[in-house]
Nucleic acid binder design. Structure first.
Lengths: 333, 333
DNA sequence: TCTTTACATGAAAACGATTACATTAAAATA
DNA sequence: TATTTTAATGTAATCGTTTTCATGTAAAGA
């Protein structure tokens, strides 16, 4: 269907080398020649075969996006952001996930070793030794999107979980005058979760509020986990006024519990979350939470990666920390 | 980092041809030789360069997924399903969207002409002439995911919108004994929307219920559109008992309106949607809706496409229609 | 006018795999 | 034993592009 460089060269009466140069806007080609080639290219609908090009240049303008799982709006937004930037820069986005069984590390290695992608965006809640080893190879440009900046031998984008949580709790204490604040944590092997808990603890401490250890309950970032944890909290003798769930999904679990127990939010107890997922604005009352600019993270990651793919600087890395924004809903009295 | 076929051949003491054959499990290679090659390949961490392979075979095991937009859980679920199947079959998933400005057709052409992908999954609400022309070229295997089966020169997966809507309305009439049912439509250039409206109309007619034309209000599949439409409906003299929104997003808009007008769902009026998006289960009360197996659609699309990529039959096409499932929540009295 | 320099283009190798065809060795048949 | 068949492997061309190096031509300087 599409013609090759050889055929185009023949039509133009020049060599393939000249066509190649013209297509790549090489300054050594005379303007007249370039114009001729480009006009023929357009007329004959010539498109350089990207596979052949990548093959010979050893550079791929395909970005591999590795995620722990392809599920939920968080990942969707990231893909969206990456795709946006890729499109504008004429790059392509290839997605894959760890698919439960295999490890994230395997997914990366697969991408790298097959020579398809020219760079990788890695989303991961934490960097284990296996991943660390791969990153250290420094073989292909990689940008890590992670909760915490815990590896500095590659570019990274992380969320300011600590300050997000800190200010959220600080807001509860100082603006809302609330002292009895409970916390449902995320999984403790998840950096985001750990950072958010730290923010919570420090905000309490800095405001001189004594911690009630019973009010810290373990969760797992799922609605169901939030439901279980809030149930536990709300049936305590000394019930907290507000529950700070480490993410919105668990906050939704708190709403479910409220309905089951016949309690009204924010009258009987308050709830705050983290993430500001799409649903949160439609909860009744709207959830107070910390907004994470996920779409922008995706864009930032792609932008950084492309920069690195064009000009690899093996010893200079960017570490971008995305700020969160306090979203005030009606879920706290 | 990774070695090439030539180096591996040298280590094994065989030719590159034999290595290639061994790697591709060619029966003409002696078992002993194959074992030797494979064990060396493993030891030396040899991975065939996919770019080179695709380049020479003119076959790519990359699937291009073209969507109108990368946003919302619908697309997420499709990507998830496609990725799942791709992973299991050692294929790769490349995503792109129309990015507002350019047309879907351009996105497809871009994928096709660059020679990167070996097949395309096209998600589109409707097939216009431009797309039709491209599909007719029959150049690369394409599977269309669309609301309606309106092109039969390629494989397609579609949703049984008509029956989904029909049975939903039928359920309202016969099980819930409701006669005054309004409908907020989707955009009328969207096939899904049109089919759902047809289902609504026929269900009314088959049950001998006279249509009140005022109760059909135009919507746009957004929350905001649903809000505006429901506002209009609920302020009518002759108010409907139940609003059937053509998708869940617009149904959520109805919930927002209810809150604003101080009306209670399902007491003051009922709402049903279509799609069963993730949020719907957390609405209070849970939304009654028609569930679409989106994840399965993605899987089905990828499975069909891969089948076609392996063995292209240019004149035999599959047309799969995915059934919907009635989800009964508490949004209807 | 002759030499040097800069510019524009072409010829050909290279990338890493696959594969048609050729070749060799071993087994089967006459 | 001589011949044919079969099995296993090697040789070399090929894919479409980029890029190094060589070459020719026009402009600039002497």
């Amino acid at each position: 269907m599409t013609i090759t460089i050889k055929e185009l060269a023949l039509k133009c009466g020049v060599s393939t080398a000249t066509v190649s140069r013209a297509m790549n806007d090489d300054p050594s080609v005379k303007k007249a020649t370039k114009d001729k080639v480009l006009s023929f290219a357009k007329k004959l609908n010539y498109n350089p075969n990207l596979l052949a090009r990548s093959f010979v240049t050893k550079k791929s303008n395909i970005i591999g996006l590795v995620m722990p799982d392809i599920y939920g709006e968080f990942f969707m937004e990231v893909i969206h952001g990456v795709d946006e930037v890729c499109y504008l820069n004429k790059y392509y986005t290839m997605v894959t996930s760890s698919h439960g069984k295999r490890s994230t590390a395997e997914a990366i290695v697969d991408f790298m070793s097959k020579g398809i992608v020219g760079g990788i965006i890695l989303m991961t809640p934490s960097i284990d030794d296996e991943i660390r080893k791969i990153l250290q190879l420094n073989h292909l440009p990689i940008v890590v999107i992670s909760g915490k900046r815990d590896f500095d031998r590659c570019d990274s984008i992380s969320i300011d979980n600590y300050n997000g949580a800190y200010y959220l709790v600080d807001y509860l204490i100082n603006t809302k005058k609330i002292k009895k604040i409970a916390h449902i944590t995320g999984p403790l092997d998840n950096n985001d979760a750990v950072q958010r808990q730290r923010g919570y603890l420090n905000a309490l401490e800095d405001n001189g509020i004594k911690l009630n250890k019973n009010w810290i309950v373990g969760g797992d970032f799922t609605t169901f986990g939030g439901q279980a944890a809030s149930n536990k909290l709300l049936k305590m003798q000394d019930r907290p006024e507000v529950i700070f769930a480490a993410n919105d999904m668990m906050a939704i679990g708190c709403y479910v519990t409220a309905r089951e127990l016949g309690l009204k939010i924010p009258i009987d107890f308050g709830v705050v979350g983290f993430d500001d997922i799409f649903v949160s604005q439609f909860l009744n009352p709207r959830l107070t939470t910390a907004h994470i600019p996920i779409f922008d993270m995706g864009k930032e990651a792609a932008t950084t990666l492309i920069k690195r793919m064009i000009k690899s600087e093996k010893n200079k890395f960017e570490h971008i920390i995305m700020p969160t924004e306090l979203i005030i809903g009606g879920s706290v009295k």
